[in-house]
């Protein structure tokens, strides 16, 4: 009965996303969330666009964003269970968490599919 459970698969996404999030999100946020708006760094628009056009960057961003989303969704689902004791809303929570991650992933792929 548990053989076809999705849990091992979701946990693998959670773990892979957790590794990527730990390695990469801090520097991304430091650069674009703090350094650029506060004027500590000035990466030019042209330079960033060249980067974004590169296929390796796009694959990198798709992997980072989708896995980070599934990591977040999985973890937040259990936070809701543990923190608020609302396990009886199981189905709603699953749809909201993983559904959100799927929508976000589709959006990421769509955005990075073609770069003008």
């Amino acid at each position: 009965m548990t053989k076809k459970s999705l849990e091992p698969f979701l946990w693998t996404l959670f773990s892979a996303g957790g590794v990527l999030a730990a390695l990469l999100i801090p520097i991304h946020l430091l650069l674009f969330g703090l350094a650029v708006p506060l004027g500590w760094a000035y990466p030019s628009y042209e330079h960033l666009l060249v980067l974004l056009r590169h296929p390796v960057t796009r694959v990198y961003l798709v992997l980072l964003c989708t896995l980070a989303l599934f990591h977040g969704a999985h973890r937040f689902r259990y936070t809701l269970y543990d923190g608020l004791q609302i396990k009886h809303l199981n189905e709603v929570i699953n749809v909201l968490c993983y559904g959100g991650a799927i929508v976000g992933s589709v959006l990421t792929v769509y955005l990075l599919w073609r770069i003008p």
Partner: peptide
């Protein structure tokens, strides 16, 4: 983490 993805998108 989710906020970061939204910000990046």
């Amino acid at each position: 983490v989710a906020w970061f993805v939204i910000f990046t998108l």
